[in-house]
């Protein structure tokens, strides 16, 4: 069976600066992959390569099809992307339900209008991520957590097979971080999507995350099971900072020096 993602020796340079160097890995269909690393490690660049926003050297294959240049529409429909932040003016004229609906506009196609079925599905997805009560609120007036949930509903409207999430819990308080990550895990479990989640935050890795890539200075330094990545020695080396891990009541915790 084809992988959802297959990268071979992928490198990205910008203005002479290497952002990614010789990255190779695969993501299976339905797999939950985490990409962890300090700021500037190349995590977001890696996601942009997968979405098609970044030119690169090397081979990128998505769903078994080798990609070169701009992604065709049919392929873009299969990949859902949530950027790190969604900056929007509080007075911007778009309500939460309309923002969610934009997720299906590519699939509906040009010169055609989304109908009642799309609207009902948008409302169902908003219920799934617990923001249905905010349907009529302007997106710019939502809190960071509410906006992230609207983004999740929007990306699900697209009906993707691969979900790319760039720091989905950035700037959220701990309780909302947990809620958003639980939603992502539930979406992965129930819809069987392949998920690639990028984060620099060691604090809240979803249990569903089966495998982790560790990136440092644009290089892949670890590709393996989550448990193997979360050791004091490995994390201390990754972040250049003393980090210890310990287990209590069957759960693993980390402690920053």
């Amino acid at each position: 069976m084809n992988h959802a993602v297959e990268l071979r020796d992928v490198s990205v340079r910008k203005r002479g600066v290497p952002l990614l160097q010789g990255i190779s890995f695969t993501v299976g269909r339905g797999e939950f992959l985490g990409v962890l690393g300090p700021n500037g490690a190349g995590k977001s660049t890696l996601l942009r390569v997968l979405v098609g926003f970044e030119r690169c050297q090397g081979e990128v294959s998505l769903f078994g099809i080798r990609q070169a240049g701009r992604r065709p529409r049919a392929l873009r429909l299969r990949i859902g992307y949530i950027p790190q932040t969604l900056e929007i003016d509080p007075a911007f004229p778009i309500r939460a339900l309309e923002a969610v609906m934009t997720g299906c506009y590519g699939r509906v196609g040009a010169f055609r209008r989304p109908g009642g079925e799309e609207r009902r599905r948008a409302l169902r997805l908003m219920e799934l991520v617990r923001v249905a009560h905010l349907a009529d609120r302007p997106v710019g007036q939502l809190s960071g957590g509410e906006r992230q949930k609207v983004s999740l509903a929007r990306v699900l409207m697209q009906q993707p097979e691969l979900l790319l999430l760039d720091e989905p819990t950035a700037s959220l308080d701990v309780a909302v971080q947990k809620e958003v990550l639980d939603l992502i895990a539930a979406i992965h479990r129930e819809l069987g999507l392949a998920v690639v989640l990028v984060t620099h935050d060691l604090g809240l890795l979803p249990r569903a995350m089966e495998r982790i890539l560790l990136l440092k200075d644009g290089r892949l330094v670890y590709d393996g099971p989550t448990a193997g990545a979360v050791t004091g020695e490995r994390l201390s080396g990754l972040y250049d900072y003393a980090i210890e891990t310990f287990e209590q009541n069957g759960r693993r915790y980390i402690s920053y020096g």
């Binding site: 979405v51 098609g52 926003f53 529409r73 873009r76 429909l77 990949i79 859902g80 992307y81 950027p83 969604l86 929007i88 911007f92 778009i94 309309e98 923002a99 934009t102 997720g103 506009y105 590519g106 699939r107 509906v108 040009a110 010169f111 209008r113 989304p114 997106v139 929007r154 990306v155 697209q158």
Partner: peptide, 23 residues
């Protein structure tokens, strides 16, 4: 009139519109 929904998606966020298959 003809491209209202595409325009709405682009005005909302160009990058997200591109990523979700909007021209």
């Amino acid at each position: 009139l003809l491209l209202f929904k595409e325009i709405q998606a682009v005005l909302f966020n160009r990058r997200l519109a591109a990523a979700s298959g909007v021209p």
